[in-house]
Every structure is written in C-alpha cells, then in structure tokens.
Amino acid sequence: MPTISRDEVAHLARLARLAVTEEELDLFAGQLEVILTSVARVGEVAAADIPPTSHAVGLTDVFRADVPRPGLTQQQALSGAYATEDGRFRVPRILDES
C-alpha cells in the first residue's frame, strides 16, 4: 500500500510549481494517500507481457506538408499577456538557464 508523506507532497508541489499552503500539504497528503491506495489496484493485473497503449486510435505517420500557413499577428500573439515590452512578453527575472 503506497504511503505518501507530507514531504513528498511538498516535493510534488515544487515539481508542479504550486506554492501550496501548510494546510494544503496536510489535506493533499491525506487525499493523495487515499486515491493512490485505490488506484494502486492497477498493479494487481498480471500484465507483464501486455503492451502498453498510449493512443486509443491506431494511427501512424500523420504528417503535415512543409508549407507555411499564416499564424497570428504580433498584436494577437501578445493579446493575452499580463505585460509586454517591445513586442515581447515581459516576465519576471529568470533565475538561471535551464
């Protein structure tokens, strides 16, 4: 049975970029534990030789012709932005290169 600690929830929240509160850590730790216990039932299925399915339809080789199509204007592209500057999206300082 999976157990999930408060620290693990905090780690997941960091990975998922969620600045969760202390109360949420407790709440989610409890709820995720219940949910994970339930969904862990997938592990009961003997499926060693079963191939995984990532796509519901069996399509392959769907390609687009390499022909330009009109996109958005700069104004449209920036229309939803919180802040812009010189035709660019203005964002807070970035800590480091990825």
Partner: peptide
C-alpha cells in the same frame, strides 16, 4: 520575485483544489 516564484504563486492561486490534486497525482 523571480519568474519561478511568480509561476508557483500564480498556479497556486489560479487552480482550484481538484485541479491541484490531479496535477500532483499525475506528477507522482
């Protein structure tokens, strides 16, 4: 604040509990 901090605060404020729960479940 850095972009990273603003992202986390935005997502924390912008998503409701069920969405956060599922994001964390999926991340796990």
């Amino acid at each position: 604040r850095s972009a990273e901090e603003v992202m986390s605060l935005t997502r924390e404020a912008g998503f409701g509990p069920e969405v956060k729960r599922r994001i964390m479940l999926g991340t796990y």
